[in-house]
Computed example of a mutant assay.
Amino acid sequence: MNWYLAVLKNYAGFSGRARRKEYWMFTLFNVIIAVVLSAIGTAIDTQIPYFIYLVALIVPSLAVMVRRLHDTGRSGWWFFISFIPLVGGIILLVFLASEGKPETNEYGANPKLAPQAG
């Protein structure tokens, strides 16, 4: 849960690097919360809480994805590869799951060497 909160605290931070654990733990908690809100919405016959949550998390989700791409040595503009039908999403998933560059790159120092969030 600390990884999720760390991303929310840095909700609009598009600079720097995010390690794999930070990105995937945020994604895991994001999916869990979205599923719970969707189930609650189905039970009360409205999806308004679910859609409010999705809109509120657009910027933090994009920010952590850009920082994750930075960790792999790629620009955040690589996000747009996901718009290529069939293969774009797969390529982006591979980039996001790849090991980060161990050395300091143009986006900052290796986040694994920095103090941990959780």
Rank of each mutant, 00 (worst) to 15 (best):
F83H: 08
V31A: 12
F83P: 03
I44F: 04
L96M: 07
Y4H: 09
S61H: 00
L69C: 10
T104E: 15
I40D: 03
M1W: 10
I40R: 05
E99G: 14
V66Q: 00
I90S: 00
G41Y: 02
P49I: 03
L37N: 11
T27L: 08
P49R: 08
I52G: 11
S82I: 08
E103F: 15
S82Q: 13
M25Y: 15
V55Y: 14
F80K: 02
Y11D: 12
G41F: 04
K9V: 10
N110W: 02
L93W: 00
P102R: 05
V31E: 11
G100N: 00
F14M: 08
P85E: 01
V66C: 01
I91E: 03
M1H: 11
G89F: 13
A97C: 06
G89E: 14
T72F: 02
N110E: 08
S98T: 05
A117R: 04
I84M: 05
I32S: 10
I40V: 09
W3L: 10
L57D: 08
S15Q: 06
R17D: 07
G76A: 07
H70Q: 11
L69I: 11
Q47F: 09
M1L: 12
A12S: 06
I91S: 00
S75M: 03
F95G: 04
D45S: 14
L5K: 14
A117F: 02
A117Y: 05
L54S: 12
T104Q: 15
I44Y: 09
L54Y: 06
L28I: 15
M65A: 14
T46F: 14
I58Y: 06
D45N: 12
R68Q: 02
F14W: 09
K9D: 13
S82E: 05
